[in-house]
Design a protein around this nucleic acid. Structure first.
Lengths: 187, 187
DNA sequence: ACCTGAACACCGTTCAAGT
DNA sequence: ACCTGAACACCGTTCAAGT
């Protein structure tokens, strides 16, 4: 006798996102997700393979959002402007949903993480702008310098590593200026 | 009737370090540490307050090592040379003990992390060199740019985020040059 | 004064039985 | 065809009893 599904993969992923954002990844338990969508924990296994699988689906949703956000500001025509905009948008994304951002860059087993292809897609606009700014032969190294700096800054900021006071917003703008200007000049 | 201790906090922390390095933080279970030092898991609570406390002690040991390593190369007399050396030494540290490096920058509850004071001590030589290179008024922003970039690069490298090929060593050297030259010039 | 076995809570996961 | 209760494994932690 067929029985209609009382929940859906979309509802489960949405609940997962909300829990991660509110209380962090350790709070993303099967029992809590099940309660949020109105079933018991074992039923979730009809929709996801495992807890790690659910973490991956939440991550895919987040990296897709980030990709759209980056693309939306990467078409000014000027690569330096695009790089600055993308750096600011990445930090704004992290401030808007710190739990989600931290999940994206958390140290997780490979099977829990979005595919390498999707991550490459998301970073494509940064690589493109870096190539235009620094030249094709320095494109990859330039893109890695920008993304490493932006990610490292945001990661340290969210971890509370900037405890020495000072103006953190100004330090981010300083970094954007320093790096985008340096990339525009030959070594 | 007093009983002599069959293990010690030093042995426990050393076992913790070794397990983290070999199999990562999730493998650092009380049972596994206990087996490594020759007692049963409940006995560990005579020496550490909790698993989180043990993680913190391992982290303290690691950040202290990193601090020494940075200080050892930060006295050439030339701040640009010092910054380059510290950046290379930090990456070498991460390559030598990736598990330990990842623990240092893992997303952990605050009570599991080394104190803010110790982290500030470890980063002091970088702030000092940045101050000499970029000027006192840009010292903090400059130091944050360098440390954010180096940490972000290493973190992405260890996570396997650099999947687009290319020469990762060369990209690191490119970043060192780009940033240390940019800091030496006024905006 | 430290060590141990037993026990408990918590959580991911499986599975037979229900509808 | 999906949902559930019961059960199991695993792990952190507590505690009374042992030496």
């Amino acid at each position: 006798v067929p029985a209609p599904a009382r929940t859906s993969i979309d509802a489960i992923v949405a609940a997962g996102l909300s829990i991660v954002e509110r209380d962090g990844l350790p709070a993303l338990t099967m029992e809590r997700v099940a309660r949020a969508v109105g079933v018991k924990a074992p039923s979730l296994y009809k929709h996801v393979g495992s807890r790690g699988d659910l973490v991956r689906l939440v991550g895919i949703r987040l990296v897709t959002d980030l990709k759209w956000t980056l693309e939306a500001v990467a078409s000014s025509g000027d690569p330096a402007t695009d790089l600055r905009s993308m750096a600011r948008v990445m930090r704004a994304f992290a401030h808007r949903q710190p739990g989600g951002y931290r999940l994206l860059f958390a140290q997780l087993p490979d099977e829990w993480r979005p595919s390498a292809d999707l991550l490459a897609e998301a970073s494509a606009p940064v690589v493109r702008a870096a190539a235009q700014l620094a030249g094709e032969d320095r494109a990859l190294a330039g893109a890695r310098t920008v993304t490493a700096w932006a990610h490292g800054f945001i990661d340290m900021e969210l971890s509370g590593a900037f405890r020495l006071g000072g103006d953190v917003d100004a330090a981010y703008e300083f970094g954007i200026e320093t790096i985008s200007r340096a990339l525009a000049r030959p070594l």
